[in-house]
Design a binder for these strands. Structure first.
Lengths: 204, 204, 204, 204
DNA sequence: GATGAATGAGCATTCATTCAT
DNA sequence: CATGAATGAATGCTCATTCAT
């Protein structure tokens, strides 16, 4: 008599294992240089299994890419849209970005450090849709704040660049292990810097 | 095992031609994906010649990397050290970075977008030395300004990140052709943003 | 980067076919000068298949080397240990050596004529073990005969050299086709010579 | 005023240096695996210089081969032909062979361990002539001894093999560093063994 | 779903050799 | 005589992918 343990379906575990091993490899050695064999060794799967589930190396990467980006954007919008005012919104972006990077280091490495063109291309359709939606909502929020006079008018490209740029730069160094800094401190200071750079200044 | 046929035109610029072709390739297709053959076709050199001069694909890239970084850092320090005051120094960094990127687009693409680990490693010794010197001098300048009360005290890592981060982020998008913006405008606005974020604020 | 076309006949003897083709090549042209392509043509396998099974050219050779040596040593010990007395033991070694060479000409060529250092090194661990066991057992036999007064005492290194040396020298010439001689005759005469050189002589 | 030192011609030194470096390389790494570049590094010569003097890698080796063999054979015949009787002749061969090997270790390694077919072929004409002369004279000596009843009649191939085989086998092990033995002892014992194997035995 | 042997185009690199200076 | 840049065929090996079991 078998005990009543419910045997979980193999397949989802396999997929997960493969994705996780692949992420490790992409992030440690780089996508272009990672071989399917590396992924096999890391996941315990067989070649056949990998190709059964994903069909190609590109598509493994594409799946990881989309998954990570979706998670990042989802949280970003949630944080932004529940902000009470312009200042907490702007500061919140820095806080969110750095927090997400800290909590999803490998996904962040893959998303922000590597951008293998083949992969972006393989995920292009889905990416386009996601980005369109994401940037529209960020822009909507921004337009409201500018109209309300809380944020100074700026070409929209610069807005994103001013807020996220420092976070990204810091993230890159931090993720590469080239910079040891307290993330909480960075969240505060980069939020402060972003707000200082964007807020509407009345006086001189 | 039998040898070549006819020795080709002895060009004193073989090295240069190879470096330039390689840069083009690395930047268009990516380092990992560029083949020596691509470089051959681009430069008109023969395999043997490439290996005679550089010894490996890595070392071609390393040479390009060091060369580009040296040029960037040299100009950066020159701009910084001839600045009259803190404000023009800070604004000057944004101006310099974006200007250098615009004027050396391919070198910038290679330096800032691609960072193949093998290449960094191949150039590691030289890089370490260059970076040590560079950051010491930047830091020295910064210490003076902070001491003089012109710039607010900040962990040194954040300083660089706040000034260069937005420029880098914008550069990346611009170099990737994903953003069309007037560089002069960006120089002004990102300089403004950086200065707003760093200057010592007296009142609220 | 796109893959193969049609999977070829799944032969359980792929390994064997590769080993045999490789032996032919190594022996005809020399190990260093044999190309993987030669082995491919000789075996009908594909590059991938060869590397799937062996991993490197060296390891193909190492496997052949160990296999041949094992066979040689196994038979040698069997012959030695079933010899009735010292004389038949000593004569038997010459007989065995020359017989084995005649019956395994290509393996002998590989084992005794070529000794590519890379190959010995690739098989080093296994070889060391085999040789230790082999020489211990030969030495044990010899010690008994010397103690019994049938063979004159000699530094152990010289014993082997006196018995096998002439066989080896003859084998080399014979295998290289530089000497045409009746092996049976050589077995008798070299056995005779070895015995004459080793037996304990009573009178002057 | 220059001092009266006679400046020796450069060329012979260069040739020597190249030959010596080549011998080292051939012997340490193997002929097939030695590159012209190895020889350059070892000799301080330039590619051009090597090709000026020798014309090809093969011909460097051929020259070394012939030179070594000539020296070996010359001494061998001298020793043989000044022997007073059969016994001292036979013993003398072992003594000479082992002595030459000890005194010309690298040349011996090249001559006896490596026999790259290309090299033998490149020197074929000269070799044929040398060997013909050498073996004729050895045979002549032998015929005399057999006719005089001092040495038992044997197929001529076996004669050489019985005398030189043990020396060769020992030399190989000794040259490879696999055997540490006193050469004087070996000379005596292998000479003894050879004589025991060849002398005409009167009684049973 | 899983497995792993088989495939072969493609790649980085080596190396003997030539020849203009 | 010496030098070393240039040549390019050849080589060992990798790797994404297929497919019979």
């Amino acid at each position: 008599m078998k005990p009543a343990t419910i045997t979980a379906p193999r397949s989802p575990d396999r997929r997960r294992a493969i994705l996780e091993a692949a992420l490790q490899c992409f992030v440690r050695r780089g996508y272009a240089v990672t071989t399917i064999d590396d992924v096999l060794r890391g996941s315990g799967a067989s070649v056949g299994s990998v190709y059964h589930h994903f069909g190609s190396k590109e598509r493994i990467a594409a799946e990881l890419y989309v998954e990570a980006l979706r998670d990042y954007q989802h949280g970003f919008l949630a944080a932004l849209e529940q902000a009470r005012d312009a200042e907490s919104g702007v500061r919140g972006m820095s806080v969110y970005h750095l927090g997400w990077v800290r909590d999803h280091a490998d996904q962040a490495r893959f998303l922000f450090q590597e951008r293998p063109p083949e992969v972006e291309q393989a995920a292009a359709a889905e990416l386009r849709e996601m980005n369109r939606h994401f940037f529209r909502r960020v822009q909507d929020w921004l337009d409201v704040q500018v109209e309300a006079g809380a944020i100074r008018p700026l070409p929209r490209e610069l807005f994103h660049v001013i807020v996220i740029g420092p976070c990204q730069e810091l993230s890159r160094h931090w993720l590469a292990g080239r910079m040891r800094i307290d993330i909480k401190l960075a969240q505060r200071e980069l939020g402060e810097a972003a707000w200082a750079a964007l807020r509407r200044r009345s006086g001189p």
